[in-house]
């Protein structure tokens, strides 16, 4: 079968691979890179479980071919936590009970990450809009919204303390 050579960076690590053009990016991440945190829920771009960050922007990994990620920098859920510490958004999901079965969570985290990188103090309505492309069947979203609000606050505090240390 024809394959195409690609190089990309995933969670800070460089990868080279030869992939069949039709291989979905979600399958490439899960199978070839052995990063199972990116979940596949519908494969038609509606549920959002496979949402990852590509060059900082949230994208559906099931609606891209791996060949299209050539040269890109991807962040999956495995790349959010640092060393042995949860990312502040992950921690906020934990504190606020923002997950039950956890299957939608990696996509939710990606959507939340993008939102908070563009808007440090979102309103609840902005949070709702940001996650409206990510379906959750467990939570009714209420505590996910709480979690993202809490995460925003944590990140603002961190930024403020970083800024004061740098000053």
């Amino acid at each position: 079968m024809n394959t195409t050579a690609i190089e990309l960076e995933v969670n800070g690590r460089k990868h080279s691979a030869n992939v069949p053009p039709r291989k979905l990016l979600s399958d490439f991440i899960r199978q070839d890179l052995a990063l199972p945190g990116t979940h596949v829920g519908c494969e038609h771009g509606v549920c959002g479980a496979c949402t990852i960050l590509m060059d900082g922007k949230a994208v559906r990994a099931c609606l891209m071919f791996a060949v299209q990620a050539d040269g890109a920098s991807l962040t999956t859920v495995e790349g959010l936590s640092k060393a042995e510490e949860l990312h502040p958004i992950q921690h906020a999901f934990w504190e606020e009970h923002g997950l039950q079965c956890g299957f939608c969570t990696p996509g939710m985290l990606a959507a939340a990450h993008e939102l908070l990188s563009e808007n440090t103090d979102p309103t609840d309505e902005e949070i709702r809009e940001a996650i409206s492309g990510n379906l959750c069947r467990c939570t009714g979203y209420e505590y996910i919204i709480d979690a993202i609000r809490t995460a925003a606050k944590k990140l603002r505090v961190t930024q403020a303390s970083d800024a004061s240390q740098n000053a």
Binding site: G45, G48, T51, K57, A58, V59, R60, L63, M64, A110, A111, E114, L115, E129, A130, S132, G133, N134
Partner: peptide, 9 residues
């Protein structure tokens, strides 16, 4: 129109 991740791409 759609959602952020779809509009991004």
């Amino acid at each position: 129109i759609a959602h952020k991740a779809v509009r991004n791409r």
